[in-house]
Each structure stands twice: as structure tokens, then as C-alpha cells.
Design a protein around this nucleic acid. Structure first.
Lengths: 193, 193, 193, 193
DNA sequence: AATGAATGAGAGTTCATTCAT
DNA sequence: GATGAATGAACTCTCATTCAT
């Protein structure tokens, strides 16, 4: 395996990571291809060798978020029980408080922006990534023996989206701590039947 | 008060309403001045007589949302007790389910988009509008005799933001019904001390 | 009628004329919007106020050719008989010998370039302009009492296209004179039944 | 002669044939190097080993057309007399009616496009290829004992160019049949002195 | 000789904003 | 106040050509 192959793959990966990060901070529309190219240290013209359109780059950012999510759930899956896993998830959210308080949830704000489109299918793709998280959460609630695990998943993930939005709209990271603590207490309070 | 003045005021008001609506559906960046002008039936060149920049129009959209919010809370304030008022608020959210499921909460998604800026002060303005809602909700919880009414306000408004985002990301209006019902039950369960 | 109205119309007309001329000399693909803008003395960005896309400008060039053709046939229609009119047409072609020897027939070469596309409908539009000429010529042959006037029209117009192409490919304006003389003699030789 | 050399030659030849075909269908400017490379099944980067610039590839397409023309005239030269040879030429044109009705004469449309340039010399080269055909036709008319065989050659080749252009502009292959038949009758009518 | 990747100079197009009347 | 027109900066995308191996 030559250095070139590794380099090429690394470049693509660098572009995806840069797209995810810059888009999180600036939003899709205020992010130019040049912004992403600069962040990834790639010449502008070369970006198009890896991604044919800006929309493809946004899709790549989305799948980068999906990948990050998978890394997280894989780590959490090593915890002994579902209650610990759910609490680990919330603790992860709280640990990102400053980023969330500044730019909101990466996937959530991206989905919110893309949902206002009705062409291109990126909106659907964003929904799919959110669904990945919902499904994992639902599985934990089911393992906990809760009735209506899907509804609980909506509540938990919705709470996360809401608290991220409020934290960033109010520019108050404390919102993340406060609501995070409430969610932890709530998870603790759920009775295993 | 001459007809001219009234006409001018009407035009300005029409532009504000159009800005609020179009921006809700398309987002700030994908909305052009021409879009708003068309929706308000005002010649493009004339928009600048009322609003010197696009940012001023966005600010106008925000204050239009604030006005709508005030209309709503004024109506709710006529209800006999705080519990009824809070439940009326939630019912209002649910009644807008289809709009929310398509474009999210008008103020919330606007705030999310503006929060990614760090110049112009529109982000702060968006926070202020959200704060208006939080303060009203907090007042109701306080009247209800709840401890930590500010925390409860965050929870309720956060839940609304979260369920709107999920409903629109998943394109499932049913999310609004389900979470709305949960919030109503929760409000009902709060004990007056 | 204000100066503004006249100016606006004049600008659009100037752009159409410039498009027709520049495209004739450079071909569609080698002509940039900036080329046309410069030739019409219009700022680049302003071109899009009058024509939404480059293709619309090319369509405008085509209709400009159609207009020129109509002016010509209107003039020829004042001649007493169809034979004189046909000969007048050929003489007009020969009088343009130098332009044809350098860039070919404006409409013909444009059609040839556009025919290689299979989207956008400009190819069809080009065919329509050519058809205008064919129809007028056919009418003259019919008035002359010729059988198969449509076939004769194809022959005459085809000969014009062919001689223009050869004159410009060989860079020999003399081809226009020689073939022009032959066509005049041919028209003279047609018997009125 | 090693396999490598033969392969290299084959690749070059494949590129020339591909250039001729793709350029005929798309025109020079709308044809990318990548288009030709793909059609020839050659990696893009490798094209430049055989042709230093795009213009060289276009020149190669022209010489490919010249080669095809030579193959044709060689075949026709085996026919017993000049009249048969000319009629064979016209029949060949008619047999290509569908291609001509779609994309025009390969050499003619290429010449028309290149004539709009005034640098690079490709225009001159195109004229040379057209001249090859004219010279061969002129030779036949001379053998037939016609006066002014060069003028007759212009007429015949011009008619071919014209009918191809009209057939493709009108998208009517029937034009090729009709004009082809007329040319055959004309050739038949020429008296050998 | 061969090849995927890299590069940068435009091209078309959009749009906030300004101008002239 | 009202309005169509004007302006130019910025952006996405393409592609001939070159590079590195």
C-alpha cells in the first residue's frame, strides 16, 4: 500500500472532517467551499476531485457525524447496563457543553437548516442520522424494560436538542449542566419492572 | 393621520410579516430580498426605503415573532389560572403541528441559524425573543407555586424546541402530538403546594 | 415616453445585436458573457437583468437573426416578381461575401453548433429560423409556377449554406462570387410555365 | 517491432478515432479531454503522453477524417469511370444520412467551428482536409471532360455541405435522400463532350 | 510509459445594495 | 416616497494541463 493511496484517503477524510466542523460553526449556507478547503489544507480546485458538488460535501459532513455517533455508541455499548449507557450518553452531551452552547448540536442544527429545503434529499439524509441516535436510545430503554421505549427515546433526544438550542440561543452553557442533571436524575428514577 | 402614512405603515408591516414567513420556510441565507419583496407585493427597490439592510429585515422578522408571541400570551393571560395558561400554550404548539413538522419552530430555527454568526448582534436579538417566552412560562410556574420556576421553564420550552426539531427532521407530525400529550400530563401532575 | 424606457429597451436591443455579432464571430462556446457585455457596453452583472442565462442570450441572437431576415425579405417583397426577389436574395448573399468567407452564414453556423446539443431546445429554435428562410424561398418558387417549390428551396438555401462554408473553410471569398453567379444563372434559366 | 510499440501505436490510433467521433457529436468546445479519454479507454493523464495539447488532439481528429476520406476515395478509384466514382461518392453520403442529419458532415462542421478562430492554425488545417475532397472531385470532373472542373467540384461539395447542414438543422434525414437523388440525376445529365 | 491526483485560471450566475429619476 | 435598472463582489463549478511516482 503506497503512500499515495494513504495520502489520498487521508485527504478525503480530512475534507469530511473539515466539512463537518466548519459547517457546524458557520452553517451550510455561510460556509464556502474555500472555507472547507482551507480548513482541510487542500487547494480549492482539488476539492472537486473528491466531491463533485457542495451538496456532496454536506452529505459527507452528515456521514461524518454518523460516524462520530457510531464511535460514541460503540464506546457506550461496553458499559455493563442500559441505564449506565444512557447516563453515559447524557454525560457526553454535558461534557460538550461549551461547543453546544456556542453552535448547538452538530446534527440537530444541520438537520434544522436542511429541513427547509425541498430538493436534493439532504433533508432526508439528516433525518436518517437523527434516527440512528433515536434507535440506539430506544434499544436502551427497551433493555431497561420500559414500556414505550420509542416515546422515551423521543423525549430524551428531544430534550437534548432543546437544551442545546436554548444554551446556544441564550449563550448560557449552564443550561446544559442544569438540564443534563435533570435528565440524569430522570434516568435514575426509572424503575426496572 | 394621512392615507400615505397609513399606507407606508401597512407596507412596512407587510414586509415584516412576509419576512417572518418566508424566512421561516427558507431560512435566512436562502431567502433573498426579492423573495420577501414578492411575498409582500412590494417592488424590490422599495424595500430599502423601509429597511436599510437585509439584517434589518431579519431583525424585523424576529420582532414580528415577538409580536406574535405577545398576542398569544395576551390571549392566554385571560385564562383563569397558570396551569390552564401553560396547557393552553402547549395546545397552541400542538395545533401548529404541521407547520412545525415541516419547518420547525419559527423562532427556534431562526435562533439556531443566527447563533452561528458572531457579528451583527442578530444572534443576541434572537436570544431575547426566546427569553420573552421563557420569562412568561417562568411566571406561570411561579404562580403555580413551583420551586425553581426558571428551571421548569427551560425544561418546557426546551421540550418544545426539541420536539419541533425532531418532528421536522423525521418529517413526522405525530411527534408533536405524542410529546404534546406528555407535556400536558406533566403539567397536570405538578402539585400546587 | 421617458428616456429611461427608451434606454432600457435600447440596452436590451444592444445586447441582442452584440450577442448576434459576437457569437457569429466566435461561436457560442468561445463567447463569454463578458465578451457580449463589453461589445454592448453593458456591465457584466447587468446582463442578467435582461437575460437570465447564457442560453437565453443565444436564443436572443437567434431571434435577432430572424429579425434581420425579416427585414431583408420585407425589402425584397417590394420587388415586382418572384424571380427578381430570388435574384435579389442571392445578390444580398454575394454582397456579404467577405463576412461569409470569414465566419460563414450567421444562422447556418449557429445552427450547426447548436445541433450538437440534445438539451435546452436551442437546436430546435435554430431550425425554426432556417425554416423561415426556406418558407419564403419556397413561396417565391411557387409564385414562379415551379413544381416542387419546397425541393427547389432546399436546393437554393442548401447551396448558400454550402458555399458559405466552403468560402470560409478555404478562406476564399471568390467562392461566393462564383457560386453566386451560378445560382443567378440557374434562377434565370427556370422557365415560367 | 515490440508489443509495447504496437500497443502504444494502437493507443494513439484509438485516441485519434475517439477524438474524431466524439468531436463530431459534441463539437470541439463541448468535448473535454476526459470525454475522449473515456471513449478511447485511456486514462486521462496518459492522453498527454500522446498529444501535448487539446489542439493537437483536434488536429489528430482532422487527420483521422482525412484518412477516412482517403480510404473512401481509394475504394471509389477502383470503379471503372469518373461518373461512377462521383455517383458512388454521393451514394456514400446518402448512406450516412442519419449521422449527417444528426450531427452534420464531420469535416464540414468541424471546419465551421474552427474557422471562427484566428490563432493556432487549426482553421487552415481544416481547410486542407476539405481541399483534399475538392481536389479528388475536381479530378473526376476533369476526367469526365467537363469544362471548369474546379467550379463543378465546388458546386458538388458545397451541395453536400449544404444538405447536411439543412438535414441536421431541420432534423430531417429525408433532406439527404432528396438532395442526393437530385445530385445523382445531375451527374447523370452531364454530357461527356 | 503510465497514472491518479493536483492545480489554478476563468466561466456562468446570484444577489445585496445603490442609483437615477 | 417609489421604482426599474445598475453594479460588482463573491460563489460554485469546470477543465486543460501538470505533477509525482
Amino acid at each position: 500500500m503506497s503512500a499515495r493511496v494513504r495520502t489520498a484517503g487521508a485527504k478525503r477524510q480530512r475534507l469530511m472532517a473539515a466539512a463537518a466542523q466548519v459547517v457546524h460553526r458557520q452553517g451550510v449556507e455561510r460556509t464556502t467551499i474555500a472555507d472547507i478547503a482551507r480548513a482541510a489544507d487542500v487547494p480549492v480546485g482539488n476539492v472537486y476531485y473528491y466531491f463533485k458538488t457542495k451538496d456532496e460535501l454536506v452529505a459527507a459532513a452528515l456521514s461524518e457525524h454518523a460516524r462520530q455517533l457510531e464511535l460514541l455508541t460503540d464506546r457506550l455499548d461496553r458499559l455493563p447496563g442500559p441505564r449506565e449507557r444512557l447516563k453515559g450518553l447524557v454525560e457526553g452531551w454535558v461534557s460538550q457543553r461549551d461547543l453546544a452552547a456556542r453552535y448547538g448540536c452538530p446534527t440537530g442544527t444541520l438537520a434544522a437548516e436542511l429541513d427547509k429545503r425541498d430538493e436534493g434529499g439532504l433533508d432526508v439524509e439528516a433525518g436518517r442520522v437523527i434516527r440512528l441516535l433515536l434507535d440506539w436510545v430506544e434499544r436502551q430503554f427497551r433493555e431497561l424494560g420500559q414500556p414505550e421505549p420509542d416515546g422515551l427515546a423521543l423525549t430524551l433526544v428531544g430534550a437534548y436538542q432543546g437544551m442545546s438550542l436554548l444554551a446556544s440561543a441564550l449563550r448560557e452553557p449552564g443550561v446544559m449542566d442544569r438540564e443534563g442533571a435533570r435528565l440524569l436524575a430522570w434516568i435514575d428514577s426509572l424503575e426496572a419492572p
